[in-house]
Amino acid sequence: MKKFYLQGLVVVMLMILVLTACGKSDKVKIVLDWTPNTNHTGLYAALDQGYYKDAGLDVEIIQPNESGADTMVASGKVPFGISGQDGLTQARTQNVPVVSIAAIIQHNTSGFAAPASKNIKTPKDYEGKTYGGFGSPFENSVLQAMMEDAKADYSKLKSVSVGDADYFTAIKKDIDFEWIFYAWTGIEAELRKEPLDMLYLKDFNEKLDYYTPVLITNETMIKDNPDTVKAFVAATAKGYKYAIDHPAEAAEILIKAVPDINKDLVRASQKWLSPQYQADAPRWGEQKKTVWDNYANWLTEHKLLEKPLDSDKAFTNQFLPES
């Protein structure tokens, strides 16, 4: 009798272990590219609405360390992250094994912005002005190209690094214009009733209408854990679809997750940005090879790429849900 009892106990314990394993969620981290903002709302929506949990994932959204999101993902410390096509293009040509698996926003919403009071309407007006930058050679090359196309003298533009300084603080000092993302800083200017003159990169040259930001992973994850990647992308896509269809509710989800955030800015930004996530693409996250190649070609033309980009290795649509 004791033998049968022990055998039965073993069977029950095994069943408990199996059921526990089946119900267990994979712990997954995603590292942001910056502090939380409306570029990231779909992630928080997927977390709040249980899309990650339904996909068998226990997701934690974290902030980048000093090395940045690209390095954290490339090294395997974190399986997923937020980056941009600009940084990822440079990384791929240096054999960094990061891959873009979804475009968070379809078109480049960034550009050079100046207070309307400074009367900077065209790149010709950059002559004699001071640009506040973040220290990338790429930004100065874009400015030089824009000014040369406008028959302006690039040598008459002064560029200084402002680091993480607040845009509205910088332009009240010695800075005339900066590179901003309209969905955040531009909308904040609207709320402040401080009108801007904005020159979008995509309006200057279609080759600069690149994807920013993008969702990334590394080659090892794609090779060894494709099911996890697919589940994560599918749940994230549902999160962004929620933010597209329910911008007001999605804004409140972000506010709840990040209580110290500027609530009015989140609500206004989300209303502006939600239609931009998918825009004219057939589905959220879709990426085009022409967009990747055009941008790489522009960098090559301006001697900003040491090696050609193999765009087929830089991005993939294979993990996106069909609709």
Rank of each mutant, 00 (worst) to 15 (best):
Q276L: 15
T71H: 04
L19A: 13
L254H: 02
N205A: 10
N205R: 05
D224M: 00
M1R: 12
W179Y: 14
A314M: 01
L17A: 10
W298H: 12
G128H: 03
L6E: 13
I62Y: 05
Q278L: 05
D227W: 01
V98P: 01
G239T: 11
E178P: 08
M147G: 05
G133P: 04
T35N: 14
G87D: 11
I104F: 01
F232D: 03
T93K: 06
V162G: 06
T220Q: 04
E301I: 03
A21C: 08
F168H: 03
W292P: 04
K256G: 08
A231R: 10
G81M: 02
F168S: 01
V99R: 02
Q85N: 07
E178R: 15
N37P: 06
I105Y: 11
L143W: 07
A46S: 07
G135M: 08
E188Y: 09
K124F: 08
R267C: 06
S25C: 08
A91T: 09
G128M: 02
D245I: 12
W179F: 14
A103Q: 12
A314H: 01
P97I: 03
K27D: 12
S75A: 09
Q106N: 13
S110D: 11
G133S: 08
I261P: 06
T220P: 00
I261N: 03
Y126V: 00
M221R: 00
R92T: 03
D125N: 07
V258H: 01
K271M: 07
Y211A: 02
D86P: 10
T228F: 08
L43P: 00
T228D: 12
K151H: 12
S110M: 14
D176H: 10
Q49N: 03
A257H: 10
I180L: 05
G87C: 05
V99I: 15
M198H: 07
T35Y: 14
K202Q: 09
D245C: 10
Y210V: 14
K118C: 05
A21P: 03
M13L: 11
P36K: 00
E188S: 07
